[in-house]
Simulated scan of single mutants.
Amino acid sequence: MWRCCKHSENSLEEAQCTDGGPAASPQFPHKAFWVSLSASLLLVIIALGLTGHLGLPQLHSQPSKIVRITVPDQTGALINQSTVVDQRNDLVTFSVTSPANHTSTVLFDIKHGLICYKPVEQESCFLRKMEKSDYDNVHSLLHQSTHKQNQFQLSGNDTQRQTEFLAVLGASQVDVSTLDKPVQDLCLGSSVHWTRRANGPGKQRLVYFCIDICFPSNICVSVCFYYLPE
C-alpha cells in the first residue's frame, strides 16, 4: 500500500496524504531543551548562593564599633573618650576630648605595630612602635568590644595611672607616602616625626603637651611629648 503526500505551494502547511490520514508532525528536541534550561538555572542559583555566602558576610562582618570611656582625672574632671574599634582591620582610634573641649586623636594600628598621635592644634603627627603593654591594653579593648557593652564608666579610685614621656626626634621626619593607609589618612597634610620612649624630659627641656588615654582595664596613661634639640 502506498501513500502520496502533497504540500501546499503557497505556505508551509501540514502535508495532506491521498489516503486521508494526516502527516506526522515534526518532532522537536523538547527533552534536551528543558534539560539545558534546568542546568542553566541551576548554575545561576549556585552562583548567586556562593556570592551571597562568601561576599556579603565579608562586607558586613565585624563592623566598626564606637565605645565610650569616661573616667575622672586627678582633679575630678571627667575625661571623655570616643573610641572606634575596627576589628576587621585591627585598628583602634581614640578621640580624646580635654576639659577645654579640644580633641586629640590616637591611632593604634595593631597590624603594623604602630601608634600614631595627632594632638589638637598641632600640624604634626608622632609615631611610636607598639610595645607589649600597648598590645595588652588594646587587646583588652578589642575583647570587650565583642560584647554589647558600648560604654565604660571607670572609677577614679580603682584606676591605675601612669605617665609616659616621648622624645620627638625632629631630625627624623617621615615621608607620609611611605606609611600605611590608616596613618596616611590621619596625618594628611601634616608632618610626621618618630618618637622614642624616655625616662623624662630633664630640667633643661619643657613638656609641650600631654594626651590622656584610658582603657577598659582601669589603666590610664598620660603620654607627654617633648622635643629633642636638632
Rank of each mutant, 00 (worst) to 15 (best):
M1K: 08
M1G: 09
C5A: 07
K6E: 04
S8M: 04
S8V: 13
S11V: 11
L12K: 09
Q16K: 13
C17I: 04
S38T: 08
S38K: 05
A39K: 11
S40R: 05
L41M: 05
L42Q: 07
T51H: 07
G52P: 10
L59Y: 09
H60W: 08
I66S: 06
V71K: 02
Q74M: 11
I79P: 03
N89F: 15
N89K: 07
D90H: 06
T93A: 01
S95Q: 14
S98C: 12
A100I: 01
H102V: 13
T105Y: 08
V106Y: 09
I110D: 09
H112R: 13
Y117D: 00
K118F: 05
Q122W: 01
F126H: 12
L127A: 02
L127W: 13
K129D: 06
E131H: 04
Y135I: 13
V138H: 04
V138R: 10
H139V: 04
L142Q: 06
Q144K: 11
S145W: 12
L154R: 00
A167K: 00
L169I: 14
A171F: 06
A171D: 10
Q173G: 04
Q173I: 09
T178C: 08
L179G: 02
K181F: 03
L186Q: 12
L188R: 14
S190R: 11
W194A: 14
R196F: 12
R197A: 00
N199M: 09
G200V: 08
Q204V: 13
L206C: 04
L206R: 14
V207T: 13
C210H: 10
I213T: 15
S217W: 02
N218F: 05
V221H: 03
